[in-house]
């Protein structure tokens, strides 16, 4: 059963991501990317990483994809993307070579050596409980730093996508702002 699920998921994920990479339509690419993310969370559930799978569903499929869909409203994305592509043969040669190299790099140490855990999974508790135990003891400082990073990213996103990007926000006084708004209305 696990074998069947793994092969089904991996074939579907690879196919969907190939659609993402090769499609000329931004909407198709985004939709297949979202579907691939959902199936990747299925892989996490097979691996027993329940909490990671749920986070993958919420953050990637929920937040990131919604953000992309929102961003696509700014770009004229309904049509076909016009691109001047590099030669396909060169691309597939380079991509294939890096694929072979990556498979060798990934598979060689994992097959050869015995990896020993440095911080063993707590026994007798389910996965979200164990994640909480480890995250708030050993990884507390990176957790806080990640929180600060998300805050910085949120402020940066608001500032970058906000209005009046052609002038400095600190130089606009209230009177000028209403004047500018009046100009836009006319």
């Amino acid at each position: 059963m696990e074998t069947f699920a793994f092969y089904l998921f991996s074939i579907l994920i690879a196919g969907l991501f190939l659609v993402t990479v090769l499609s000329r339509n931004v909407l198709y690419a985004m939709t297949s990317l979202a579907a691939g993310m959902v199936l990747i969370s299925g892989l996490f559930f097979i691996l027993g990483a329940d909490f990671l799978g749920v986070v993958q569903l919420i953050v990637y499929v929920g937040a990131v994809m919604a953000l992309y869909a929102f961003g696509m409203m700014f770009f004229d994305a309904t049509g076909v993307v016009k691109e001047r592509n590099t030669p396909a043969l060169l691309v597939f040669l380079l991509g294939g070579l890096s694929a072979v190299m990556l498979v060798v790099i990934f598979a060689a140490p994992a097959i050869g050596s015995h990896v020993t855990p440095s911080f063993r999974t707590p026994q007798g508790v389910d996965n979200p409980h164990a994640v909480g135990l480890v995250l708030f003891t050993k990884y507390l400082v990176p957790f806080e730093v990640a929180a600060v990073m998300l805050l910085v990213a949120m402020i940066a996103g608001i500032i970058l996508a906000g209005k009046k990007m052609d002038t400095s926000l600190s130089k606009i006084s209230d009177g000028e702002e209403s004047q500018a708004a009046g100009k836009e209305e006319r």
Partner: peptide
């Protein structure tokens, strides 16, 4: 990845 998307889309 989440923060990269937020800043990058801006």
């Amino acid at each position: 990845a989440a923060s990269e998307v937020a800043v990058g889309l801006g």
